[in-house]
Nucleic acid binder design. Structure first.
Lengths: 166, 166
DNA sequence: TATTGTTATACTCTATAACTATA
DNA sequence: TATAGTTATAGAGTATAACAATA
């Protein structure tokens, strides 16, 4: 496998930490790593993640916060346990997150009608408004982060990624 | 967007933590999230990452350990600073990692011929042997983790991912 | 003055064990 | 006996500031 000189882009020069590349450190040959789906998925996600986090900061949301709000917008009354299963996070790590969204008045906790152990989660009207705005910002962030792909390529990419985890 | 009943796979039932899905928690509608490249890239990477980590455990390597060894196999004499730039990690977080690989006798640190500040990193023969074996295991892990894709689809996926971050 | 490698440290994310109340 | 939610806590990953040696 040969290296493509164009792929090094020395002039671009700013990583996600805002650092600029120093003179003496040229990029290394990562020929093997870049043949791996896992390596490329991680790098691509890292890139998108930076754009995503920057845009969400305007709404005071982290990535998981947004995922929770978006799920509640489409699944009113969902429980913490369901959020955990869908997003693949562990229950103890959701507690403070839910409590914070509650304190901000974005969600409500109501007793579950059939199960006294469970708590149904609902967006408040403020939460609905914020979620609508954030979803639009996320869609724009997606387009910006994947600007080098046309819509057909973007759909192909998503379809292939889903076949890896679904 | 409708949910595909086949995609839930109730019998498969074990997430990356080894937990099995309890009865009461059906998956939620994540229609919006699954239209996002970022969300799908993260989920796909998480899936592959689990397979990857499991296989690397047999060699006593974490993902970043493998990346470092593979880079040194193809770039003998690379410096810590170059590894950091290529893998997008910060220098302080590489120090213990390099020291551990050195203690295990997998790499050597030699003074840089032209720059007294820098240290050139080289695989030992034991390091070369382990890296060769690990690279083969990684390739097999890749094939297993992306078994639902044929080689043409895998190449397409990698190409599209690279256009997001290169 | 700038860069390499390093120490110390803090902050976030993720994980496990154990408890309560309900089922 | 098992599940939902919670508490406390431990571990891993990631971040910044500051230092010595060298350029």
């Amino acid at each position: 496998m040969t290296r493509d000189p164009k792929s090094t882009k020395p002039a671009k020069g700013a990583d996600k930490h805002g650092h600029t590349a120093p003179r003496g450190s040229e990029r290394l040959d990562n020929g093997f790593l870049e043949t791996l789906v896992g390596y490329n998925a991680r790098r691509a996600w890292s890139q998108i993640s930076t754009v995503f986090s920057d845009r969400m900061a305007a709404y005071g949301l982290k990535q998981v916060d947004f995922s929770v709000l978006s799920l509640l917008a489409h699944n009113p009354g969902a429980t913490s346990r369901q959020l955990c299963a869908t997003l693949d996070i562990l229950p103890p790590n959701l507690v403070n997150l839910i409590a914070a969204l509650d304190s901000r008045g974005l969600i409500e906790r109501r007793p579950h009608p059939r199960d006294g152990r469970a708590v149904g989660l609902y967006l408040t009207s403020a939460g609905e408004k914020l979620t609508r705005e954030a979803e639009q910002a996320v869609q724009q962030a997606e387009l910006d982060a994947s600007a080098k792909l046309n819509s057909r390529e973007r759909e192909t990419l998503i379809r292939l990624l889903q076949r890896l985890y679904l």
